[in-house]
């Protein structure tokens, strides 16, 4: 489903980033990094607007020819339907602790609706929360958790 999933720390460094196919890893890194611009924009707009505090989903960040990137955030951005087939879209999600989840989705998978993206993010968030609950995990460190890895893999494998 997703081709790249990234967890970005509050300070904008990657806590976790994985992508398929591996050859395009660098490209995904650049993509996710630039998408942080939009995240910042949306998060700072958040302060001005009175929005539902429970909504973490940022919606579709921006599509490129190939991707959709999504994010989760506290912003209540209306769902953006993937009207552009055969692209990868980026979606975003920002937690209350300003940790960002970015998901790059191959939009050729048109069956992927906004609600599904949301539920994927929720799953990701829950798994991330589990990682944080690990007493041996130092907040701010890179995530090396097998459980988290497996969860990400499951979300990526669904496509193929």
């Amino acid at each position: 489903m997703a081709v790249c999933i990234a967890v970005i720390a509050k300070e904008n460094y990657p806590l976790y980033i994985r992508s398929i196919p591996a050859e395009q890893e660098l490209k995904f890194h650049y993509t996710v990094h630039t998408s942080l611009d939009v995240v910042d924009e949306k998060v700072s707009a958040m302060g001005k607007a009175l929005v539902d505090q429970r909504e973490l989903y940022l919606g579709l960040l921006y599509p490129t020819e190939d991707y959709k990137v999504s994010l989760l955030s506290r912003l209540g951005i209306p769902c953006v339907k993937s009207m552009f087939p055969n692209q990868l879209h980026r979606y975003g999600y920002v937690t209350n602790s300003k940790v960002k989840f970015v998901m790059v989705v191959d939009s050729s998978n048109t069956a992927l609706r906004d609600n599904e993206i949301r539920s994927m993010f929720r799953k990701l968030h829950n798994s991330y929360t589990d990682v944080m609950c690990n007493p041996f995990y130092n907040p701010g460190d890179r995530i090396h958790s097998r459980a988290f890895d497996n969860m990400v893999t499951s979300m990526m494998v669904q496509v193929c």
């Binding site: 599509p63 490129t64 020819e65 009207m83 552009f84 087939p85 055969n86 692209q87 939009s107 050729s108």
Partner: peptide, 14 residues
Amino acid sequence: ALELLHNCVQELKL
């Protein structure tokens, strides 16, 4: 426009 342009490129491929 941006969506359209991306879209067209993809549609032609599709």
